[in-house]
Amino acid sequence: MSVDEINPLIHVPARLRIMATLAALPVGDNLSFTRLQEMIGLSAGNLITHLRKLEDANYINTEKSGLGQSSRTQVVVTKRGREALDAYTATLRELIEGF
């Protein structure tokens, strides 16, 4: 097992924190963008960029409701995202044990 096998999409501090935070919720639950931003501590623009990358990989889904200024976005980790995070965690464990 080498460092090259680490999932590069998740292996970025901000996205790792996003995935870990969303995965801490029970399956079937989603989190508002505002609460996620508050918990992660990123700026809105920065968070959106990371969420977009994760969504492109189908690790998360976003759902927008409402219109205009009152619109809200909910973010949920997908099954694929949870599996990717589990695989990433297993890879880290193997690398650390192998050191």
């Binding site: 460092v3 680490i6 292996h11 970025v12 501090p13 901000a14 790792l16 963008f33 505002t34 931003q37 700026s43 809105a44 623009g45 920065n46 959106i48 960029t49 990371h50 969420l51 976003t62 927008k64 205009g68 200024q69 009152s70 619109s71 809200r72 976005t73 880290l92 690398l95 650390i96 050191f99």
Partner: peptide, 27 residues
């Protein structure tokens, strides 16, 4: 898609994503 949330922050803000280049070891 998230323009309303972005409106709550700084619209002119750049997103350099400096952490993309951050070296993060396994530990």
């Amino acid at each position: 898609k998230w323009e309303s949330e972005m409106d709550q922050g700084n619209k002119t803000e750049k997103t350099p994503l400096a952490d993309e280049d951050e070296q993060l070891g396994p530990r």
